[in-house]
Amino acid sequence: MEHQTDDSTLVQDYISGDERALEILINRHNQRITSFIYSKVLDRDAAEDIFQDTFIKVIKTLKKGNYSEEGKFLPWVMRIAHNLIIDYFRKNKRMPKFEGGDDFNIFSVIGDEKPNVEKQLIKDQIDSDLSMLIDELPDDQRDVLIMRIYKDMSFKEISECTGVSINTALGRMRYALINLRKIIQKNNIVLTNY
């Protein structure tokens, strides 16, 4: 009967620099670990990848000297494989899967951020109405409002552009908004798409 060196001795040999010991360990447990991984992922390529990643972790831990012989070698490797299987499923879960079914609606997954035609028409109408209301404002207030809201300029830029102080530009903006509200209230205008 052939004498078989136990795992614990092989691990110690490997840590001491005997690369052949690792090969024996891998070959000894190859079938068991790969089959275990495959039984969970049911994909040969994924099982092969996870097996490889498992032993890369094993090699790194042993070489770094972080392995403590608290339990057995195989259960430790199986635990690493098990964690990597969980990572594999977690990673795949992030990818949206479109599996058809009676209660599955593809549009609940594929969203369209754009407003529909009706909402777009209402928005265009509101923009057009608002533009006419802004034209009713005194020139100085209208200019500040257009530069701030439509051109996204800062009050510093507006003050430089119009040749007035920042405080004056702020005041004009404030009065532009107050006056716009007054016009809207006076004419009972409703600016909303709801």
Binding site: L22, E23, N27, N30, T34, Q52
Partner: peptide, 18 residues
């Protein structure tokens, strides 16, 4: 329940890495 093994190439790669 299928019994499978990692390929020789995979083991060879692991040995080279080690």
């Amino acid at each position: 329940c299928e019994v499978i093994q990692a390929k020789k190439e995979t083991i060879s790669l692991l040995m080279q890495y080690s």
